[in-house]
Design a protein around this nucleic acid. Structure first.
Length: 272
DNA sequence: CACGAGACCTGTTCGC
DNA sequence: TGCGAACAGGTCTCGT
């Protein structure tokens, strides 16, 4: 489900509240782990013991990770493919696919719902243990076009798998990688170190544009997993196989790159 | 180093 | 209608 814009939207909703109360200021009274493997570290017993009594101070995002700043630890959650976070009253029935419950004060519950069980939670004192391997934040000021050009030329990789590599750049997933490459008129199999400065600058601009647009639309809602955003109505290539390119009318094609479904306009995004 | 295949999981959609 | 295959927003590990 969630790439940078979806995680950003979820973090903002939890932090600021919306239909339900904002979480900062609420105290975790008890944790309830319903699927063991959802917890990466520490052990279930240590997790329960350490997290109880801590107050949620702030909620942030880094890459696709949600970060809950607690009094003494950071709770980190990665939603992977099908994860979502629900704030609900304690009286609500435990929905199918709830994997981890945090019982809060004020009759509230934070539930980690994750049909496919790929999602993970970490409770750590030092977030760097998990986050240090991430590449730059694409929307931060420090991520300049020059830095992208340098990083592209530091390796020789196919563009699409490289954009999905979180140590290269943090936050892009399959949707936004396809959309950014199309916007930049670059083929997903093009080699990173062969991009001209102009092509690299276009990619930099396109990455930021599609992510900002995704955030502006509160993310993309597809299938049964994530609800709330409407960026799916603005895709130019993703899941548009067989439909005409908005630029040139050519039929959008689906190929597989790095085992991921990949969508391109063969006319706008030639390989050579 | 770079890439592909397989694994981890469940649910939905597609094709016969 | 039924049933298996293919596919899904992610990432890790292994073999070449």
């Amino acid at each position: 489900m969630p790439e940078l814009p979806e995680v950003e939207t979820i973090a903002a909703n939890l932090r600021q509240g919306g239909d339900l109360p904002a979480l900062p200021g609420h105290t975790i009274q008890r944790a309830e782990l319903l699927w063991e493997r959802t917890l990466a570290v520490p052990s279930p017993a240590e997790f329960s013991e350490r997290i109880a009594g801590q107050t949620i101070r702030d909620i942030r995002r880094r890459g696709k990770f949600l970060l809950f700043d607690l009094d003494r630890h950071t709770l980190m959650i990665h939603l992977r493919m099908s994860g979502d976070l629900w704030v609900e009253p304690e009286s609500a029935p435990v929905a199918p696919h709830h994997r981890l419950l945090l019982h809060l004060d004020g009759d509230l519950r934070l539930a980690f719902n994750d049909a496919r069980k790929f999602g993970r939670a970490w409770l750590v004192e030092e977030p760097g243990i998990v986050l240090d391997s991430l590449g730059p934040e694409p929307l931060e000021e420090g991520f300049t076009a020059e830095i992208l050009y340098q990083r592209l030329h530091a390796v020789k990789r196919q563009l699409k798998p490289l954009l999905l590599d979180q140590s290269f750049l943090a936050g892009l997933g399959n949707i936004y990688a396809d959309e950014a490459l199309h916007q930049a008129r670059l083929h997903p199999l093009a080699l990173s170190n062969e991009l001209t400065p102009e092509q690299s600058a276009r990619l930099w601009e396109s990455i930021r544009l599609v992510l900002q647009e995704g955030i502006r639309r509160n993310g993309a809602s597809i299938d049964w997993v994530y609800r709330g955003g409407n960026y799916q109505h603005f895709f130019k290539v993703y899941q548009r196989t067989g439909f005409p390119c908005y630029n040139c009318g050519t039929s959008i094609e689906r190929l597989v790159v790095g085992q991921r479904g990949t969508h391109i306009c063969p006319h706008c995004q030639p390989l050579k």
